[in-house]
Simulated scan of single mutants.
Amino acid sequence: MEIVQTMNSDPGLADSSSFYVVMWKQTEQTYWQAAPFRAVADPGIQLKVVKSKTGPGEYLRNSLWHTGDTPDQVRLLWKDPRNVGWKDKVSYRWFLQHRPQVGYIRARFFEGSKLVADTDVIIDTSMRGGRLGVFCFSQENIIWSNLKYRCNDTIPADYEDLSAQSTQ
């Protein structure tokens, strides 16, 4: 399956006020509309949990753009400490694991066969299920290709390792 985003636009969402989002900003950039607040994005990969009290609109838009937490909108779970933006005309593979029943989240990002970023294990129980979709905000000519997902109840070994460490 392949999805193509041809136009630059405001964010496109499937579930409007409660979701996890992985985003990768190419450069530092301040959102061009300073209302309702000034939103500044740092380069790099971010994993956020969105629990928006307002739903779609200006607050959520600027909160998604902004790197960091925004009260009553977005909480930053992880940011790549390297602050490296994506490169033009480069294909990246993302491997995302989520086990909602235990709150396990891990995302890995590859350029070819080279691992370029890894969230390691994150535990967050904000949401216990839902749908999977793609997200684009202010970028044109994106191609999502070779999209696959599967349901898997097996808890990854690194979660078990983390649980064992926390009980010692």
Score class of each variant (00 low, 15 high):
Pro11Asp: 14
Gly12Met: 11
Asp15Met: 09
Asp15His: 06
Ser18Ile: 06
Phe19Ser: 00
Tyr20Glu: 00
Lys25His: 02
Gln26Trp: 06
Thr27Met: 14
Glu28Leu: 14
Val40Phe: 14
Ala41Met: 10
Ile45Arg: 10
Gln46Lys: 11
Lys48Ser: 04
Gly57Leu: 15
Tyr59Gln: 10
Arg61Val: 09
Trp65Cys: 02
His66Thr: 02
Gly68Leu: 12
Thr70Trp: 12
Gln73Lys: 11
Gln73Thr: 08
Trp78Ala: 10
Pro81Tyr: 15
Asn83Phe: 15
Asn83Cys: 15
Tyr92Thr: 10
Trp94Thr: 06
Phe95Ser: 09
Pro100Thr: 01
Tyr104Trp: 14
Phe109Ala: 02
Val121Gly: 00
Val121Asn: 00
Met127Ile: 06
Met127Glu: 06
Arg128Ser: 10
Gly130Gln: 06
Leu132Pro: 01
Gly133Arg: 00
Val134Gln: 12
Val134Arg: 12
Cys136Trp: 12
Cys136Gln: 15
Cys136Arg: 14
Ile142Ala: 02
Ile143Met: 02
Ile143Thr: 03
Asn146Lys: 09
Lys148Glu: 11
Lys148Ser: 08
Tyr149Asp: 09
Arg150Asn: 04
Arg150Cys: 02
Cys151Asp: 10
Asp153Phe: 04
Asp153Thr: 02
Asp153Ala: 05
Thr154Asp: 15
Ile155Asn: 07
Pro156Gly: 07
Tyr159Cys: 00
Leu162Thr: 02
Ala164Arg: 11
Thr167Glu: 08
